[in-house]
Design a protein around this nucleic acid. Structure first.
Lengths: 123, 123
DNA sequence: GCTTGACCTGGAGTGAACTCGAGGTTGTAA
DNA sequence: TTACAACCTCGAGTTCACTCCAGGTCAAGC
C-alpha cells in the first residue's frame, strides 16, 4: 500500500502541514517514519483516522477529548462501552448545537424580513 | 422605564459582568451612565440589543463582524441594504454549518452503531 | 465614622488551536 | 556537485474572546 508524504497528506485531508505535525506532537497521530530520512509516511489507516478526527473537530469537540478517545482506544476492547458513551455524548451535544443554530437562524431571518419590508417601502 | 445595573444585566442576559464591560470597550455596547456615580445603566433597548448580539455570537459570527453591523447602523438608513446583505450572508453560513454538523453527526452515529454491534457480541 | 459591597478603570493573563521562524538535513535533477 | 525543494525539530508567536487583577470611588447601613 502506498503511503503519503506530509505534503500529500495535507492536500488529501485539507489540514495544513503544520497542523499535521501539531496533531502528532499532542499525541493525536503517529505516522510511521521513513527508515533512512526520518520523514513522515501516512498510511491509509492514518488518512482514515485523520478524516475521523476532522469530522469530530468540525463538531467542536476539543482536541483534548479526541485525545481521551484515543487513550481509551489504546486500552483495548475493555473500553468500548466508554468510547461509545463518549461518542453518544458528543452526538447529543451536536444535536443541541443544531437546535441552537436553528433558533438563531429564525431570529436572523426575522430581522432580514424587517429589512425586506422597509426596503420595499423606500426602494 | 427601569434601567438595570450591570449585575442585573449580567443575570438577565447570561453574559458575565466582565463580558459586558469588554463588549463596551470594543464598541459593541454603549449603556448610559448614572450622572453622579458614573455607574452603567442598561435600558430595555440595551437589553434587546445584547440579546441580538448574543444570538449572532451563538452562530459563530465574530465580534468584529457584529461591530461592522453596528458601524453600518450608525451610518443611518442608507446602509440598510448592506446590513441586510450582511445578515443574509450570515444566515447562509449558518445553514452551511448546520449541514456540516448533520454530516458529522451521521459519521458519529455510524461509528456508534459499530460499537452497538460489537457490544452485543461480547456483552 | 467606618465597614461593606457594588461599581469603576487600565492593563495583564488565559486557553484553545493553530501558525510561524530559525537553523539544519535529505532527496532529486541538471 | 551544486542547487533547491521538501522535510526535520524546537520553541516562540498569533488570534480570538474573554477573564482576572490591582488599586480606587461611592452609597448605604450599623
Amino acid at each position: 500500500m502506498p503511503s503519503l508524504s506530509i505534503q500529500q497528506t495535507a492536500q488529501e485531508t485539507g489540514l495544513s502541514i503544520d497542523t499535521l505535525r501539531y496533531y502528532e506532537r499532542i499525541g493525536l497521530l503517529a505516522p510511521s517514519r521513513d527508515a533512512s530520512s526520518r520523514h513522515r509516511r501516512y498510511s491509509e489507516r492514518d488518512l482514515a483516522w485523520i478524516d475521523f478526527v476532522t469530522k469530530l473537530r468540525s463538531t467542536g469537540m476539543p482536541l483534548a477529548e479526541i485525545h481521551q478517545y484515543i487513550h481509551l482506544y489504546q486500552q483495548g476492547e475493555a473500553t468500548q462501552a466508554q468510547r461509545q458513551r463518549l461518542l453518544e455524548a458528543q452526538a447529543a451535544r451536536v444535536e443541541a448545537r443544531i437546535a441552537e443554530l436553528r433558533e438563531a437562524l429564525a431570529v436572523i431571518h426575522k430581522k432580514i424580513d424587517g429589512y425586506r419590508k422597509s426596503g420595499r417601502k423606500t426602494a
